[in-house]
Amino acid sequence: MSLSRLKRIESYSSPILLVIFVQLFLLFASVPTSVFAQARPKKATLITLWVPQAQFAGYYVAIDKGIYLKHGIDLKILRSGAGYNTFQTLKNGQADFAVLWLVTALKERSAGSKLVNISQTVQRSSMMLISKKTSGINRLEDMKGKKIGLWEGDLAIPARTLFTKYGINFREVRQSQTVNLFLRGGIDVASAMWYNEYHVVLNSGIDADQLNTIFLDKLGMKFPEDGIYTMEKTLKSDPELVDEFAKASLEGWRYAFDHPDEALDIVMKYMHRDEVPANRSHQRWMLLRIKDLMMTNGEPGRFGILQKDDYDAVCKVMFREGLIKHYTEYSNFFKGTHAGK
């Protein structure tokens, strides 16, 4: 609505109408420019790596708190979980955005899919190798010849890289989504996310001091994990949408960290909606650990940014391991212009 048109209206309107129009104008003026620019929010879709849980709290919070709407986006989060392929959903255009692991993204890019990182949320590897103290595995070297549970696919890349680097031969057992095999002694060492399986083990009645834990990150495995991705063509066709999405998502994350109880309520709501086993104490733990992983203690200015060093290191390792055939320049891959602010 242009000013000249307003003036025209003014010329033949009654004083009451004028007041209404002025108020409407003021109302519109108070809405962010993006909305003002296009009155109807753009529809967009996101697929996360897994079912609703605090690992993705920022996105759910941003929806429920109207942050995406504020940024002109009418976002829908697609169902995910076992049986869903996050990358494929992004690639075939069912989703505009996806939360993916960096290693997955690099592999797919190497395989020819032009996807770009618009925000790197989880800054470092959350992967742990845990064993019961009773099994006597105190160091990485002690894992030689042991039964070690590894997940299928990309989730195992950091651990495999570690074992290759240190020349550890072991008996691999594919690990499912439960930790029961580990709890019952079916494997000696289990893979665990710090924010997830580790806590499940603790809350199965095993105390932290009954476990030996090895953080991959501490052994030099610099594998940033969750990031927000989109296809290059989406970025080209609607850079504004991509930009606003990244901004709104990070804002959602900040809100979630600042209001953990509210964030948990929102996450739990989505878990109940999708009939996922919902456990508040577990989600609380997850939210706090994700916060630790995203905020990378004591290093300001990293929030949402894929560090060039990290990117280069991961590319080199993956190339060396033969997981990727080639990799692109950092600047071609990371397009998170608004991150870190």
Partner: peptide, 15 residues
Amino acid sequence: YLQYIYWDWYQIPRE
């Protein structure tokens, strides 16, 4: 999405 051999009911007695 997960082959039966990776389910707990199979994997645990197997291992």
